[in-house]
Structures are given as structure tokens and as C-alpha cells.
Nucleic acid binder design. Sequence first.
DNA 1: GCAGACCTGATCGTATACAATCTGCGATGA
DNA 2: TCATCGCAGATTGTATACGATCAGGTCTGC
Lengths: 236, 236
Amino acid sequence: MTDQIPTARQEGKRATRARDVVEHLTRAIHERRLGPGMKLSEDEVGEIFGVSRTIVRAALQQLAHDSLVAIEPHRGAFVAQPTVREAREVFEARALLEPRTARSAALRATPRDIGLLKRHMDQEHEALAAGQNGLALRLSGQFHLEIARIADQATIEGFIAQLVSRSSLVIALYWRRPQAMCESHAHHALMRAMEDRDGDRAEEVMKGHLLDLLSLLDLQDPVPVPQSLKEALTGR
Amino acid sequence: MTDQIPTARQEGKRATRARDVVEHLTRAIHERRLGPGMKLSEDEVGEIFGVSRTIVRAALQQLAHDSLVAIEPHRGAFVAQPTVREAREVFEARALLEPRTARSAALRATPRDIGLLKRHMDQEHEALAAGQNGLALRLSGQFHLEIARIADQATIEGFIAQLVSRSSLVIALYWRRPQAMCESHAHHALMRAMEDRDGDRAEEVMKGHLLDLLSLLDLQDPVPVPQSLKEALTGR
DNA sequence: GCAGACCTGATCGTATACAATCTGCGATGA
DNA sequence: TCATCGCAGATTGTATACGATCAGGTCTGC
């Protein structure tokens, strides 16, 4: 109760605070402040956010449903540690969903959409230039989500959102290169294809992009980085 | 507390009873004992299953995450009523996922898998012959799930499971023909393609099968069938 | 007679309390 | 010294209690 997160969005639409906790935790995972295997104690999380365990439990169960955290009965919740097999599955699923979605997006994109994508990519570059790798990684994932949104397929967008989230964990565990994102080129090429309304090219670029990502993963387990939970959540 | 469901599987692996409630409700929806729009009062569900609202809430939130129920704040939980747009999205997503999954399954299927599929299809026929349309519908959905399982893609299997579930609701709302399942032929053809290890044919058959289903939907809203909750859940 | 405000009953959102279970440490004996 | 047993603390699973919010009906004033 001493120092808690600034209540997130108090102008929020709904009173349900579980959503806030989910958002904070998800963002922390995306930015790699929360690493795979880290324990998420209900009491601890509840104190940090200033909510009771009821809320925390709901949030954790929701995250577990997206395979972002693993709940072990009578043991607790932990940030998920995708196995090699799961890592492969995630990218195979993305390879199945995203190329065709990129095609649809390219065919449907309005000039406004293109503008938003450009702004998004600028932010990505800024974060990268500023050395904020965590932020850059999260923005990079959001780029893929934006494309699904442009394709106007809410259901598929939900699936991709889940897969992008899990990809963060996969990258945290299996990424070799210290240089975080060399993939800006791919995003740029994708955007140009969409600008040209070239569905074929967009699909092909996305396919290659995902294959690149997968090929850059080393399917051995590097050391996880268990750090303090509180520091990860409060230390912006 | 007077008459409650027989506690489902008491040999179950885990103590979490929320999973039981989810399973029961899901099955009820699949078999169309619970129709779109039906209210799921927390107290009522809790009494029927002999659990507290805590459990019921967890179950309902899980179902909401799969878009099987819609939770309206301060109003309650209702069996979802997919809009025309959602209906289309569900089948578009299935068309994206299932054909390629069927191809993988055909290439990986063992004789044991084929045997299980055959038995499954027999059950489907039996249910249909016995006039148990609800059961037949559920088994028909499980057939698709079995294929994803054979393809050995747990992640994609999860997505398909969700889509198949939602398809039940879509069918309940937008199906015209009184004859429930004329699609047994498609399942049969699919199985033969898998028996022949013919990935191309399996993919093609699945694609056509899903297009058939979509074309049989009439995207106008027929009357929903609101009935008693308790009767739907206890009256096996 | 009708429209709008008020009240009431019911239902949900959240917090807290209690019971069940697990983990870790220390005592005990070989 | 090492392995095993048992207890204490901590953490999770579930139930219940209380406050907040909303839908529907009733009553009053025009």
C-alpha cells in the first residue's frame, strides 16, 4: 500500500481493474522486464497494484489462457517458458495466419492506415536509436497487430495478438544475436507493398519475414534472467 | 443443493472445479441445449453445479475469452449471439487454418489415428440415425479437432477448438436446413484422403467442406430458442 | 391518460476470511 | 555424515460478506 502503480488509466471505460493488471503485466512481458520463469505471487502482485487477490487471480487466469503465464496448481503462477516445441508451433501458426492477413490488409489499407503505420515505424526507429530495446520489441509486435487490424479481421487479430505475445517469450529464451531488431527492413518493405496495394508482394514479404525470424532463433536454451518482480513492474 | 450435476469426472487430474463447469457448459452449448442469448446467472449456475460464485465467475470469464459467452458489465453473462460479421469471420479463420492443418494431418496420420477417426465417424452416424442431432453436431465438431490433434499442432488445435465452438453458435443462429448434418460425406472423403496419405487432396477437401458449410448459412437471423437453464443442463 | 422521477429487488464487482496443500528447514536415528 | 520424518510458515483454492450498479415497476404531477 506504500507505493503502487499509478492506477493505469483512471479515465478507463470499465470499472474492471483486472483488465488493467493484465495490460500492465502483458506490457512488462513484452518489454522483457518480466522474464520467463519469474514467479508471480498473488499477494505480491496484488500489493503492487493495490488490488485484492481476487482481481489478481482473474488477471493471471486470463494470461494463462493466452499461454503467457503457466499456473501450477498449489504452486503459483509463473511467466511461461515456452519449450522448443512450443516455440516452433508459435511461428508455424504465425506463418499460417499472417501472410494471408497481410495480403488482405494491403488490399484494404486506406491512406490513413498507411499514415498510422508510418508513424508507428518512426516510433520503432526512435526507440531503437535510443537503445530502448524492450520498447522497440513491443512496438515491433504491435506493428504486426496493426496489420491484422487493417485487414479488419477481429477474430484472426485476436489469434495473432496471442501469438505475438508468446513470440516475445520465445525471443527472450531463444534469441542469439545481441542486436535486437534487424528486422526493420522487413517492416519497411511490408509497408511499401501495402502502399502500392500489392497483395501478392505483401503476402510474400510477410512470409519471408517470419521465416527470417524463425531462422534467427537458436533452439537451445540460453540462461533465463530471473530478477525482482517489484523492480520489473514499478521501475519504468 | 437439492439436485446437482454428478460432479462430472471425479477421477479428474486436477482439483480445479472451474474446469468442470467450463466443460459442462461448453458441451451444453455444443449440443445446443444452451442456445444463443440464454442468460447464465452466476447464482443459478452455482446452485446447479454445487459450487460458489467464485468458481462460476472463473468459468464464465474463461468462456467469455473464447467468445462463447458475452459478459455485460453489471448485467450478467449470456450465451453469445454471434453477429453476421462474426459468423463470417469465424469461417474465414477456419478456412485459413484448417485446410493446411488437414494436409499436415494426412501426411502424419498413423494407422491408429485412422482407426480412431473411423470409430469417431461411426459414432457420428449412430447419433444421426438415432435422431440425436445435438450429439451429432458436437461429434462433428470433434472430428475437426481430431484432425488438428493428428497434425500435432497444439497451438493451432487450440484456435480451431475455439472456432469450432463458436461455429456451433453460428449454426444455431443462421442454419436454415432442418436436416442437421449432410456433411458426413465430406468427413468420409477427408478420411479417405488421409488414409491414402494424400495431403493435397485432404487440403482441397477440407477447403471445399468449409466453403460448403459457409454457403449453407443464411445470414439472416432466425428466431433464437430461449429455454430454461436448469432443464438444459440437468436434463441429459 | 401519460411522462418522468423515485424506489425496490436483484445481480454483479470486489474484498476478506477460512481451509487445503505444498515447500523448506530442522530434528532424529542409523 | 547422511537420509528420513515431521512440523511450521507460506501460498494457493474456495466460500462468503458487503457495497455498487442496474432493470423494472410504481407513484406522482401535469
